[in-house]
Amino acid sequence: MNTPTTLATHEAHNRLHELTVIDVRTPGEYAGGHLPGALNIPLDQIRRALPDISHAAARGHVLVVCASGARSENACRILAENGITTATLSGGTGAWAADGHDLHRPQGSARATWGMERQVRFTAGTVVLLGLLLGFVLHPAFQILSAGIAAGLVFSALTNTCGMAAVLAKLPHNRPRAADLDDTLAALRNR
């Protein structure tokens, strides 16, 4: 299995002209700002894009990015299992922007949504508060909701995965339209 390399932001910035950049965040996150020239293929669509990513990797270097690096590492793992050598951006788009590099936004795009981490924090906090409130007002058994979220957060930290993010990514505002993904895959084939 191929092990992905990690590029620091300054390395990626200096090599951007020779890289095929794949952003594995949700379309809403991508619209909020992405590396110049990045193509949006959400993590849950990576397997569908394997032939096209393999073709791009055969022609040059592929850099996989996300907000912080966790989703891009997961994508790189999937790609490596399929014989595709890739690199990931250390710290993701957050580190890219923090180092003073520009993030691009699709022209005419008003479809920016909250980042996945923010969506998870909001959902987890809402369910915890709801569980506590219903536990005090209706029945103590509702506090199990809060305990379940706490257990999920601990599991998420230990495994560097997030089941809640996987569920939230399936919501309509986080999903690419089929035509958008088809256009992205066509652009990837033509690079």
Score class of each variant (00 low, 15 high):
80 A>C: 08
154 V>A: 10
62 V>Q: 00
125 G>E: 06
1 M>C: 08
139 H>Y: 12
47 R>P: 06
186 A>S: 07
54 S>M: 12
121 R>N: 13
20 T>D: 02
41 I>H: 01
33 G>D: 06
29 E>F: 01
57 A>E: 03
59 R>A: 15
12 A>M: 02
65 V>G: 04
191 R>S: 14
112 A>N: 06
101 H>C: 08
42 P>S: 00
36 P>S: 13
160 N>A: 12
51 P>A: 03
108 G>Y: 03
77 R>K: 12
190 N>L: 13
63 L>A: 10
93 T>R: 00
42 P>A: 01
188 L>P: 01
10 H>D: 15
26 T>A: 14
38 A>M: 11
29 E>W: 02
116 M>N: 06
117 E>F: 09
127 V>E: 08
153 L>A: 12
106 P>I: 07
18 E>P: 05
8 A>Y: 12
101 H>Q: 15
95 A>F: 11
118 R>H: 08
77 R>F: 10
73 E>C: 09
103 L>A: 05
30 Y>P: 02
83 G>N: 05
165 A>E: 09
53 I>V: 15
126 T>F: 15
137 V>S: 07
97 A>V: 13
170 K>L: 15
98 A>N: 14
80 A>P: 01
97 A>L: 12
12 A>I: 08
77 R>H: 14
68 S>V: 12
127 V>M: 12
159 T>Y: 00
162 C>G: 13
11 E>T: 07
115 G>P: 04
41 I>T: 00
131 G>N: 04
